[in-house]
Design a binder for these strands. Structure first.
Lengths: 240, 240
DNA sequence: CTTTTCAAAATTATAGATAATTTCTATAAT
DNA sequence: ATTATAGAAATTATCTATAATTTTGAAAAG
């Protein structure tokens, strides 16, 4: 849903009301967007300090727009700020991943129910193509972009901007987890889930489609993985 | 849910992570909080321009914290900003009220399902007291505060901070509408709805309670009212 | 009388500078 | 060895000043 690493959005409210106007982005928005990409993709690790002077220097700006960018990132839940003690990349544990998954499920189901009457065969074909692209993806970035496209395609026709913006933010939070846990060997169940949802939609079975989407988004799996140092640990998987 | 007029929160992310710490609020947070009160209560009308220099002067601050306050208000959906063209109080039409109501219903139901196992008789008694206070309220402020308290009491035990913060923001948006449409003669159905929800919760009927809450929040009524100038028009009512 | 154009005023956006707070580090004490 | 403390360095938060953009309003042209 969310552009995530391949072009993360920016401020939530901006998204709600300026998504289409979007004349020129301010320096603050640009900085927020680029930092969001790094946070979502894991380049900036959870807990990492974001120092306004350093960032201002890197982007050849003063720290005023940097501070505004921090507020935008806070609103997305990607950064946390303690007064007088600076801003850090938000941490996220399994409990938060669960919380985000539940919220996404609730809101995406709502969006799908309102979008369903406006879905055309053409849109569903595009969504199928996105699923196929996800199948063939061999890296997290590509997979996440395709997954994003699928969800966006079937939900956008709901025409509820605030709802879509909220879903976007939640998707960015999910994507962070995806990037941190991605393993190219994983055979996800995502393709099958996506196709089930599409099949129901094609047959006009909105309730069944909504239920499948809810289960799909809520699903969090776990499987053992081998770390770089050869140790075994448990990792968690999401279907996107 | 949201403090609304009686002490609106501030930044969403701040709420998520700093709600309990909340050592000292920064000037930006203070400005955002006070402006949010005015927007929610209707003192600042939809579409009104928020001029940073004027606001800075009023609060005896420079415009740097004012600009940050604007970003916080944007994140809550209470203000909209167009780059280089200033910030305005967000407008809201019936479609948006509907959208917010649907989102609230989806998220509050989710919160209630997770809160239900942790609800104690003491909490439910408090919630009943809040309902009673709402019944006796004769002005919008008091009524909204009591309604807020009811929802907060039964939802907070879910222990999902991001979810609760999102609900808070939506509640502020609802409250704006409530304040704009309040009429002291309205006999709302709220007390009955609240008591139905409580009755179900006392009997451990979580599904029924969740369904009642969803209907309650989603409900938007309309009734003719007489304006100050004596003209008749249609007004919309929410149950809170 | 309406529309267009251009300059002045108002306002936003950014930069540079200052003050206040926190964090770090070395040193001393228990 | 661990804890406590004081000073220094780094960082945040704010203010003042400057640049850039948009809006306003009046005058001129059609």
């Amino acid at each position: 849903m969310h552009g995530a690493a391949a072009g993360s959005t920016g401020c939530r409210a901006q998204i709600i009301y300026n998504r289409m106007t979007a004349k020129k982005e301010t320096i603050a928005q640009r900085i927020a967007r680029l930092l969001a990409e790094r946070i979502v993709s894991g380049t900036l690790e959870p807990g990492a300090r974001l120092r306004q002077d350093h960032i201002a220097e890197e982007f050849a700006a003063s720290h005023v727009p940097v501070r505004e960018a921090f507020r935008l990132l806070e609103a997305q839940g990607l950064a946390v700020s303690e007064p007088r003690r600076g801003v850090r990349v938000a941490a996220f544990d399994l409990a938060q991943v669960r919380e985000v998954a539940e919220m996404r499920a609730a809101l995406e189901v709502l969006a799908l129910r309102h979008a369903a009457p406006h879905l055309t065969p053409a849109i569903l074909d595009e969504a199928e193509a996105a699923t196929l692209a996800g199948d063939k993806a061999r890296d997290a970035r590509t997979w996440e972009a395709a997954n994003s496209r699928f969800h966006k395609l079937i939900l956008t026709p709901c025409g509820m901007p605030r709802l879509l913006a909220a879903i976007d933010d939640l998707h960015a939070a999910s994507a962070r987890f995806l990037f941190s846990a991605w393993h190219s060997e994983w055979e996800t169940r995502t393709d099958r889930d996506h196709r089930t949802i599409l099949a129901h939609l094609r047959r006009g079975e909105v309730d069944a489609a909504a239920e499948a989407l809810g289960r799909h988004v809520r699903w969090i799996g776990r499987r053992p993985v081998e770390t770089a140092s050869g140790r075994r640990r448990e990792a968690f998987v999401i279907q996107g």
